[in-house]
Amino acid sequence: MEEVKISKKSKVGILPFVAGFEEFAELAETIFRNAERRGDLDKAYVKLIRAVFMNVEKVANESQKTPRDVVMMENFHHIFSTLSHLKISCLETERREAKHKYTDHLQSYVINSLGQPLEKLNHFFEGVEARVAQGVREDEVSYQLAFNKQELRKVIKEYPGKEVKKGLDNLYKKVDKHLCEEESLLQVVWHSMQDEFIRQYKHFEGLIGRCYPGSGITMEFTIGDMLEYFSSIAQSH
């Protein structure tokens, strides 16, 4: 298990020992499900799965081509699916742990890959929030020179829908290059990215509403547009 050599040029995908554990467990369950010496098998399972967990982490840390989060996400998703399917009671703790690791690394990958698609707006509103934190009232932020309505409009203009869609298209291609086909997580990741982008968008909308009330300032694209971008990009690849 410890001798897995990871290619520097190709995706990591599902590790051989993760797939191997699945095969072993399926066979063992077929043969020993109701065996008298079930306790010995259960002990072996626990020992084996801990080694699998440890080695997934090791490979993920050493991976160069595939991001660490992707190695963790895909392999722990596979382990979680295997354990959910086989229902091995002595591994229930590990099943939950695998699910936890999968969802954690999915979230981490989504946030790190998506980053700040509206970066300049992020910086602008970070400045706005910093002023509010310093004691400036929300509805008076727009009187600050660096954060007046003209400045906000200028930044918003840099993100017409067409540019946003182009950025998302490039992001989709990048994600597609990272993920392996056999685990089929591309749409899960893409949907999570959509949710995160909408969360950021709503955050900006809320700040505009509170700090620039009655200004009529809106983003250059709507949530409806955004949903359409995400959907059409996924369908076009």
Rank of each mutant, 00 (worst) to 15 (best):
K58W: 12
A28V: 10
K47M: 11
A60D: 03
K43Y: 04
E29F: 00
E26F: 15
E62R: 11
R37D: 12
T30E: 15
L41H: 05
Q64V: 13
T30A: 10
N61Y: 05
E22C: 07
T66P: 03
E26Q: 15
Q64M: 05
Y45A: 03
N61I: 00
S63I: 13
S63P: 03
F21L: 13
F32G: 11
Q64K: 13
N34W: 09
I49M: 10
A35S: 12
K47H: 04
L41V: 05
A28G: 01
E62H: 08
L27I: 11
E23H: 01
N34Y: 12
V52H: 03
F21P: 02
E26C: 12
L48H: 10
A60W: 07
E57W: 06
D40R: 03
I31Y: 09
D42L: 04
E57K: 15
N34E: 15
N61F: 02
E57R: 14
F24C: 03
R33L: 14
E22S: 08
E29L: 01
L41T: 06
R38W: 03
E22G: 01
V46P: 01
E36V: 06
R33W: 06
S63Q: 07
V59F: 01
R33Y: 09
V52Y: 06
D42N: 10
A60M: 02
G39H: 12
S63K: 05
V52N: 01
L27S: 14
K58H: 09
E36A: 08
N61K: 15
N34M: 07
K47P: 00
V52L: 06
L27Q: 14
F53K: 01
A51W: 05
T66W: 06
L27G: 07
N34S: 12
V59K: 02
A25C: 09
K43V: 09
T66Y: 07
E22I: 06
G39M: 05
E29S: 10
I49E: 13
R38D: 00
D42G: 06
T66F: 04
A35T: 02
L27D: 10
E36L: 05
E36Q: 02
E62A: 15
K58A: 08
I31N: 04
R50M: 14
L27V: 11
A44G: 00
R37I: 02
F32E: 11
V52W: 07
G39Y: 10
E36D: 08
M54C: 08
R38N: 03
K65E: 08
D42W: 07
N61P: 00
A44W: 02
A60T: 08
R50Q: 14
N55I: 00
N34V: 04
R33V: 12
F24L: 14
A60E: 03
R50Y: 07
K58E: 13
E36C: 01
G39P: 01
R37W: 03
R38F: 00
L27A: 15
E57N: 14
A35H: 07
E22P: 00
E22T: 04
N34I: 02
E22H: 02
E57Q: 12
S63F: 09
V46W: 05
L41M: 08
K65I: 01
R37G: 13
R37E: 09
Y45C: 09
R33M: 05
A25D: 02
L48T: 11
